[in-house]
Design a binder for these strands. Sequence first.
DNA 1: CACTTGACCTGTCCGC
DNA 2: TGCGGACAGGTCAAGT
Length: 307
Amino acid sequence: MPELPEVEIIRRGLEQLAVGRAIAEVSCSEPRSFPGFSPSVASTIIGTAITTIDRRGKLLIAHLDNGYSLLIHLRMTGQLVFRPAKKRLQATREQDPFASNADDGSFGGGHPNASLIRDLPDKTTRVIFRFSDDSQLYFNDQRKFGSIRMVPRSEVADDSFMQRLGPEPLLEDFTWQELKDRLPLNSRQPVKAALLDQSVIAGIGNIYADESLFGAGIHPLRPVLSLSDNDIERLHESIRCCLQQSIDDGGSTARNYVDSQGMRGEYLDLHAKVFNRTGQTCCRCGHTIEKTRVAGRGTHICPRCQK
DNA sequence: CACTTGACCTGTCCGC
DNA sequence: TGCGGACAGGTCAAGT
């Protein structure tokens, strides 16, 4: 479930790995993963290069030098993994970070920084971009919820999904006042549901909703209309703190998130306080972390710290 | 109108 | 061991 930090990590990785490479071939084995994909679309893409990669909320935007852009949404299980060209001579495992560790089935021999993904393509690979130097970019998506769309660059800003997105929470000019302006202050909707609403803030999903609310000491079921200015200020600070910390940690790997080189993120291990910590003791007060259900999502709280 | 639930998918995990 | 069912959660459509 890539959220803002994970998508940003992928963006930064692809900026280094994929920008500037000419696309020599593109294939799609699952129509749902690239609606409208056709030989004509492929021929439009072939021969172009990725000039820049932007992010808006959880959406990646790869601009091509042919006037089109690829809008890529990973939804829950989407991955974008770059692989360099296979070397003619087999490198030794010590030297090659992409060497297969298929024999023990663990994460790269147990090293936390080794690639989680082994040989690609695999059965979850939906779209493959091959570059002119034989390096490749794999769009993997186990559950087929993610998708790639190609739109003229001039129409990206008008895209209906883009238009509905709220502000970027990590931009300097995202103030607590703007958060207040965006929240439905007259609503009895649980504050967690509001945080998950991409038109309120762009990029927050289940993990960072839970972590941000814990950080602010706010119970996820609190109606938005019950929030004081002070609550909103603390929530604003907590959101930015959690998202930035996760980016610094390489994102969260709860299920199958990996970055553009197939690496796990470490936020959940290093800095998450409640998410996936049901039954553990709260780091702040020692009470047991509980799991409940809010807005149809699994929700992790410290019932003593969050009021 | 405000808010909640179900559908879209597949892999994993749990209890029987 | 195998099987059925719950669960995972981003987004949109449908339902209450």
